[in-house]
Write a protein that binds this DNA or RNA. Structure first.
Length: 368
DNA sequence: GACGCGTGGCT
DNA sequence: TAGCCAAGCGT
């Protein structure tokens, strides 16, 4: 049976909600966020998806480019998958993009092309969980729903002096339940949720020193009163990452470079990559592999090692630039290996590669 | 409830 | 430098 979560000092929640809207409206202009200039339900939805676990500064250029290419839900529902992934390339968590399109198709077919305003209906759409349904519901439709994210957990943990571990999902649920009865309907609901986010992003910072002197909650914050704002929130450590070694092969045939599409499930699903093999391979290992696949190297050049860190995996990369003997190599490779042979220009134009391969990008342009 | 799923900026 | 962290969701 799971532990009962207790959120302390809930009696000051009304005071928190009293302070935030005024502060939000007063300082809102300080952050120039494009999704706030023309907040249609589509714009709010798109921004909330892009902002999941992603900083606003990283999102802004993607958001603007995405809307330029796909200005309506209808356009999103009909977009070509390759183009969709190209628009998302480098932003990470790529299932967000696929779910966005899936939801757009459902909205087009079942909801007359308009985002539903009901929380439980929003919740059924792919990619929309409790947080995002609440954010859209409150910001776009004025519904009284607290959108509890990392910012809210941090701000509340400090203001209420709660030492509950915010890594535990039940704590998030308890915080949401503590807030919900006090939430107003109308524009103030959205303003409150955005106020929490602005406060968490600019004042009540997670690492380093929070800027308490500029905080609208300074006078009611229990952690600040006790001088323990730097100790909160409590958050248990994530598990250790597993290490994987991979050897990247830049297989070149004249101006063509080999690309391989990743499996449709799992890490970086469906994205393209440079061919690679497990382990740290020597020149001899690479030559053996080439020979096994009917390829003949004209030249083999070692590339620098690189490290790419994901949330749950660390890739330790080594690499070889392989110039294949013309004609023989290419035809053999076409027969035996599932590679696309593309020019750098085609790669840049049409293929979505994750950032994990960026270290080896410069070498595809080298002249032979 | 635990885990898989990216990336880049900051300390 | 290595770790921490960000407007979470699906399974």
């Amino acid at each position: 049976m799971r532990q009962k979560i207790n959120i302390p000092h809930q009696e000051i929640i009304p005071a928190i909600l009293q302070e935030l809207p005024g502060w939000y409206r007063q300082q809102a202009g300080d952050r120039e966020l494009p999704w706030r200039t023309s907040p249609t339900p589509y714009h709010t939805w798109l921004s909330e998806i892009m902002l999941q676990q992603t900083r606003a500064t990283a999102v802004i250029p993607y958001y603007e480019r995405f809307l330029e290419a796909l200005p309506t839900i209808e356009a999103l529902a009909h977009v070509d998958d390759e183009r969709l992934m190209k628009l998302w390339q480098g932003l990470g968590y790529y299932s967000r993009a696929r779910n966005l399109k899936k939801a757009a198709i459902i909205i087009t077919e079942d909801y007359d092309g308009k985002l539903p305003d009901d929380f439980n209906t929003l919740l059924k759409l792919p990619g929309i969980g409790r947080y995002t349904a609440s954010a859209i519901g409150s910001i776009a439709f004025g519904q009284p729903r607290p959108a509890v994210d990392g910012n809210v957990l941090r701000v509340l943990s400090r203001t209420l002096a709660s030492s509950a571990d915010i890594a535990i999902p039940a704590v998030k649920t308890a915080m949401e339940q503590a807030l919900a009865p006090h939430y107003p309907a109308g524009q103030t609901a959205g303003d409150l949720n955005q106020a929490f986010m602005d406060l968490g992003a600019t004042i009540c910072l997670p690492n380093g020193e929070p800027h308490c002197t500029r905080c609208p909650l300074e006078r009611i914050c229990l952690a600040h009163a006790d001088g323990i704002e730097q100790e909160l929130p409590l958050k248990s450590s994530p598990r250790q990452r597993r290490l994987e070694k991979h050897t990247i092969l830049l297989l070149k045939q004249g101006s063509a470079i080999a690309l391989h599409q990743r499996p449709s499930k799992g890490l970086l699903a469906g994205l393209w990559e440079f061919p690679n093999l497990p382990g740290k391979l020597s020149a001899k290992d690479v030559k053996t592999w080439l020979q096994k696949h009917g390829l003949l190297a004209k030249k083999l050049q070692a590339l620098p090692a690189a490290k790419h860190v994901f949330s749950h995996v660390e890739w330790q990369l080594s690499g070889w630039l392989v110039e294949l003997v013309p004609a023989s190599g290419l035809s053999a490779a076409e027969d035996k290996l599932p590679f696309n042979w593309v020019t750098p220009e085609e790669l840049a134009e049409r293929y979505s590669l994750p950032s994990a391969f960026q270290y080896y990008f410069p070498y595809i342009y080298r002249k032979k």
